[in-house]
Design a protein around this nucleic acid. Structure first.
Length: 760
DNA sequence: CTAGGGTTAG
């Protein structure tokens, strides 16, 4: 009987065999014997039987020996159900069964960082010299810290296995301690494939792919895991082409990719956004009859979503069934949000049960990136209150961007404080978005303070602060930063050049601008647009037009837009008409073209043409899209369109506007509220109050309407923040409430503070 | 029962 049953056990390969064995054991009344029930559970582990079945075996027997319990622990460990491992550990304690040496490694691994408690048990029970227990203890400290304790355990070992060395090296890499990891690797006498793989993934994590590849190439032998590590290294650092190249090599060498390989490959295809490649890949998966687990499904989902095929993505999502994990939901939410379909994204978001941080971040980012800043901020508040989740650095990047977008400086400052209060990781991206937020709110002083505080900066840091200075007309600072950038060993990129050219344009620095433009290796259409803007603003139309002629690519709307704007400044009707005609072809729905062109006719006194353009605008029906704003003053509404000069008192308005801007500039602030309210001399305050209130209110109308156009074209941002600030000051000085309506939002200024409402 | 590799947010 004994040998008969063990033979069945050995041979059994399906859960059907398992049930036969179970039946035999019950039939022979062996289910009260530790050996046989343990054998059953071991078979459950081997065949990945469902937990309910294994628990049934547990419940139907009374012989709960250490050995039997250990089999149960192994079963749940095998399933990855660490919570269940720990709850069976509790049952053991209730049953007064002491775990043996072979149970402790499992317990320690399942307990994660709480394994520290078990370290004491291990020492007390004298398992400290058991080599696998010892490795588990050390590995826990290597993973969760303190790494010094791991090293102490490591140093005190009388004889170390390769696994011990590997755990220690991996622990060092986790903290990015390259020197320590490398040192251990060098002094090791016996290395295996895992040691080498550790080095490959370690260097990949440090973004040092050269060294990672060096170790990969130097491996005496490679396993599929080694290949995966190298592939993941390339994938996570944005080298999709390298991933595909290495993958081909892998197939040529004859290594069989496993499920994890496929996930990495699919994810690289997503990043490339190549639908053709994606379809080839699915054919490959089909041919190779790959078992699609939830990881692969989510990756495929993401691939279709990123390649723009939402129908295919949705089909996979709807057919997922039990494999529909949280990543799959998140992929769908972020995909809809990316395409701008916020309603569908929100619908999925609301229907999702267990939202994690990525879910919230995806939805918040979706709002922030689609110009729905108030919704982004609202959802962020809900995340804190309803979601009970601690935001992370990614959340903050979106929220700060939303604050910058609507010029909410007070809220932005609150968010910055929150960063340190709840100890959020201050990544480079977070710093960059704080800089961006401050400069968009017109507060260059704090933007610069943060920039200087950064220990490590990247190209984005420089680009952001330079764009800030450019927008504020401070070209000298922007150009100076470009040389500091190069000293800092960071290469200026496309965006850097746009920022610095914009700066030159705003400050009228022709020679500097020319020099920079000529230094650009391969100017893009945006660079040409900046240069045309610079030349145009200075009235150098011949040069601007010949530059447009010399362009190797087709000019886009930005180029002609710059030309049109320059024509307005210099009253050049001929060039204005030329540019406008090009723009009507490129952007037939942009109402701004009509407005600008009609203004050009207006300043030249060609009123018939003004009338003609207004009519044409009405006929084409584009006026709906016009950004507008209005000021309510003493019950009277003053409405303005971006760039519109049709108000009856336009001369007064611009006159006062220039006085106001100069005063504010002279006071040395660019919209910082605290500085605005404290730094102004008493007599200046009086002078400002002296300006007639109605005129001021109308000025703000123009300013806000200009701000409306500015949100799309960043270059006049200064006006936006100046305006915002001016109203704040006035509301404080005059002790009155001013309501400004900008498109469909209301800004209520009271007592030097501003609040926004979507509805009145 | 030791040690290495995977999807989603900016």
């Amino acid at each position: 009987m004994y040998s008969y049953l063990t033979t069945i056990a050995k041979k059994s390969s399906t859960q059907k065999h398992l049930k036969q064995l179970h039946a035999q054991i019950i039939l022979n009344s062996l289910n009260k014997t530790s050996f046989w029930v343990s054998l059953l559970v071991t078979q459950c582990t081997r065949l990945s039987a469902p937990a309910s079945y294994t628990q049934l075996i547990f419940n139907s027997t009374t012989c709960r020996t250490v050995y039997f319990y250990t089999c149960m622990l192994k079963y749940f460990y095998h399933l990855g159900a660490h919570q269940d491992v720990l709850s069976y550990f509790q049952r053991m304690q209730i049953d007064d069964v002491l775990p043996d040496a072979s149970a402790y490694p499992i317990l320690i691994k399942s307990a994660g960082k709480y394994g520290v408690v078990l370290h004491g048990h291990v020492i007390k029970l004298g398992f400290g010299c058991h080599c696998i227990v010892r490795n588990a203890v050390m590995d826990m400290y290597a993973k969760f810290g303190p790494v010094e304790v791991a090293r102490k355990v490591f140093d005190e070992m009388p004889n170390r296995s390769v696994a011990d060395w590997n755990s220690m090296i991996s622990g060092y890499w986790r903290l990015g301690l390259e020197v320590e990891a490398r040192e251990l690797f060098d002094v090791m006498s016996e290395r295996n494939v895992i040691t080498w793989t550790c080095m490959v993934s370690g260097y990949s994590r440090m973004k040092d792919l050269g060294k990672a590849r060096w170790f990969f190439d130097g491996m005496p032998e490679k396993s599929v895991v080694s290949w995966n590590a190298m592939l993941a290294g390339y994938a996570q650092n944005g080298f999709e082409d390298e991933v595909l190249k290495l993958f081909k090599e892998m197939l040529v060498v004859g290594v069989n990719p496993d499920e994890r390989t496929w996930v990495t490959i699919i994810s690289s295809c997503s990043s490339k956004g190549d639908l053709c490649l994606a379809q080839n890949l699915e054919v490959m998966l089909d041919q190779r009859k790959i078992q699609v687990n939830s990881f692969i499904q989510s990756a495929l989902l993401d691939m279709y979503a990123k390649c723009g095929n939402m129908v295919a993505a949705r089909r996979i999502f709807d057919g997922l069934g039990l494999l529909r994990n949280s990543a799959a939901w998140n992929v769908m939410i972020s995909a809809y949000a990316r395409t701008g379909d916020l309603a569908t994204a929100r619908d999925l978001f609301d229907r999702m049960r267990e939202k994690n941080i990525i879910t919230w971040n995806s939805m918040i980012a979706g709002y922030a990136q689609n110009g729905q800043s108030p919704q982004a901020i609202e959802l962020f508040k809900q995340m804190l209150i309803i979601g009970h989740l601690k935001p992370d650095d990614v959340t903050m990047v979106s929220v700060l961007s939303a604050c910058g977008h609507i010029g909410a400086l007070d809220l932005g400052k609150w968010v910055v404080n929150l960063l340190s209060n709840i100890e959020i990781k201050l990544s480079i991206s977070v710093y960059n978005s704080i800089i961006s937020m401050y400069s968009k709110c017109g507060n260059m002083k704090d933007a610069m303070r943060i920039f200087q505080k950064m220990e490590v900066r990247d190209a984005v840091s420089y680009n952001t602060i330079m764009a800030g200075f450019a927008a504020h007309g401070n070209a000298i600072e922007a150009i100076g930063l470009m040389s500091i950038m190069q000293e800092d060993d960071i290469k200026p990129d496309r965006v850097t050049h746009i920022a610095v050219l914009t700066a030159c344009s705003h400050a009228g620095l022709l020679d500097e601008g020319r020099k920079i433009f000529e230094s650009i290796n391969c100017p893009t259409v945006d660079h040409y647009a900046c240069m045309v803007d610079l030349l145009g603003r200075l009235g150098k139309f011949d040069e601007a037009l010949s530059l447009v002629d010399r362009m190797s690519m087709e000019p886009h709307a930005g180029v002609y837009g710059s030309l049109l704007n320059a024509s307005r400044i210099h009253k050049r009707v001929d060039i204005g008409e030329f540019a406008a005609n090009k723009l009507f072809e490129l952007e037939p729905n942009n109402s701004g073209i009509y407005v600008l062109l009609s203004n050009i006719y207006a300043v030249s006194g060609r009123w018939k043409d003004v009338e003609r353009i207004r009519e044409a605008m009405k006929e084409s029906g584009v006026s709906k899209a016009t950004g507008w704003s209005s000021v309510e003053y003493d019950g009277k509404m003053h409405k303005f369109i971006a760039g519109d000069r049709s108000h009856e008192r336009v001369a007064d308005i611009y006159n006062i506007l220039s006085v106001l801007r100069r005063k504010m500039r002279e006071s040395g602030y660019f919209g910082d509220q605290s500085c605005a309210l404290t730094d102004i001399e008493e007599e200046e305050k009086e002078e400002m109050v002296g300006i007639h209130s109605e005129k001021l209110a109308i000025c703000f109308g123009i300013l806000v309407s200009e701000a409306g156009s500015v949100i799309r074209v960043m270059k006049n941002l200064r006006i936006c923040s100046d305006c915002h600030m001016a109203i704040k000051i006035i509301s404080k000085l005059e002790e009155r409430e001013i309501i400004v309506r900008d498109n469909n939002r209301f800004h209520i200024f009271k007592d030097g503070l501003c609040s926004c409402k979507d509805h009145w």
